[in-house]
Nucleic acid binder design. Structure first.
Lengths: 199, 199
DNA sequence: ACCTGAACACCGTTCAAGT
DNA sequence: ACCTGAACACCGTTCAAGT
């Protein structure tokens, strides 16, 4: 409105920032490039100077989201470094809490068809990093002799599937989020590992 | 639903049938009412005689999908009625296999934002039925004294989360489906219950 | 070099009008 | 009663033209 100025230089970053806001607040289904351009006060064709297409912008936004996700997992990972079992449990809780707090972001990262078209090489590093936190934690548990199962890969996938599935069920409101207190999450995550740990 | 033949005889059902085909083959993201109409050879406004809007058609298609899903679970449920532990394992395997075989349908049922707008009351009966198969199976396991955990709800949610999460990871190709043989599925599902069963 | 405006091909949805 | 065609408001994307 007041802004009829020539936008220099920073449009690319502003597209990412405003785009992320809209995407995370409103979800993928109603996300449009034209809305982002309008919100910034630029013509609807302007984004094409900086991004090949709509998906290219979404990939860029996703990259930032993956970093946030990694950070959310890294915190408990380092905090409970010396208590393998607790570390694995806290990792699971952090995963689920991140999903609850960032449902639209989580959907873009894990539940959208877009992902197939995303250039995996771009995001695989940090993605692998997130996964490696889990694998490391499982290794620690096995190494410290706390588990009954010794298969790192199988136990990692098992844990991942569980937190991923519980996150999905909660996000989709198949399970009423209102009922999902911190205590319930704590209980479920502990129960999910219980079978494989010596008591 | 009785139908007078004017143009095609039964446009309503043809919309559901052709719509389901397109939806399940190509996915939600590229699904359009206009394409369905064109494929049938009817004007793009014609569907609005039979459905309030696009989502209304999708809900109808979803209902059919939920029935198929229920049937896929009911088969092992009744087949292994007298072997509680095996019943639960086969139920999990059937869940995962259905997801792999019907990824787009599964996404519509469980992973789309649409679901929130879907009139849950319409689908909750059969949905509850599917869930009750799982709960029944867990109850059987507990009743026959095979498990170390006695909390029906917690154990049901645990099992559901695991198969749901593994399905999601496979569908999203976070895990390479090529590597997911029947043996791997069998192994994972068994491992997921192993901790809670006396050996 | 960066941005605009018109243009094109697609959408969902509504509605007066045709059969 | 069922369907059509025009119309409207939105999309993504391209491109010649403006600054």
């Amino acid at each position: 409105m007041e802004n009829k100025t020539y936008h220099h230089g920073d449009l690319r970053n502003e597209l990412i920032e405003v785009g992320a806001k809209l995407l995370i607040e409103q979800g993928l289904e109603v996300f449009s490039l034209r809305k982002v351009a309008k919100e910034i006060g630029v013509s609807h064709a302007a984004p094409y100077r900086h991004f090949k297409d709509k998906e290219d912008l979404i990939v860029e936004i996703s990259n930032k989201g993956i970093e946030e996700f990694y950070n959310a997992l890294a915190k408990p990972f380092y905090e409970y470094k010396n208590q393998p079992k607790l570390q694995l449990i806290e990792l699971g809780k952090a995963y689920i809490k991140f999903a609850i707090d960032n449902p639209y972001l989580m959907k873009i990262l894990f539940f959208s068809d877009l992902k197939k078209k995303i250039d995996i090489s771009k995001i695989s590093d940090i993605n692998d990093d997130s996964y490696s936190l889990l694998v490391d934690s499982v290794k620690n548990c096995i190494a410290s002799g706390e588990t009954t199962v010794k298969d790192v890969q199988a136990l990692s996938l098992l844990t991942w599937s569980f937190v991923h599935g519980l996150s999905a069920l909660m996000m989709e409101e198949v399970i009423n989020i209102g009922e999902i207190s911190d205590e319930v999450i704590d209980k479920m995550v502990k129960l999910s590992t219980l079978g494989y740990f010596k008591s």
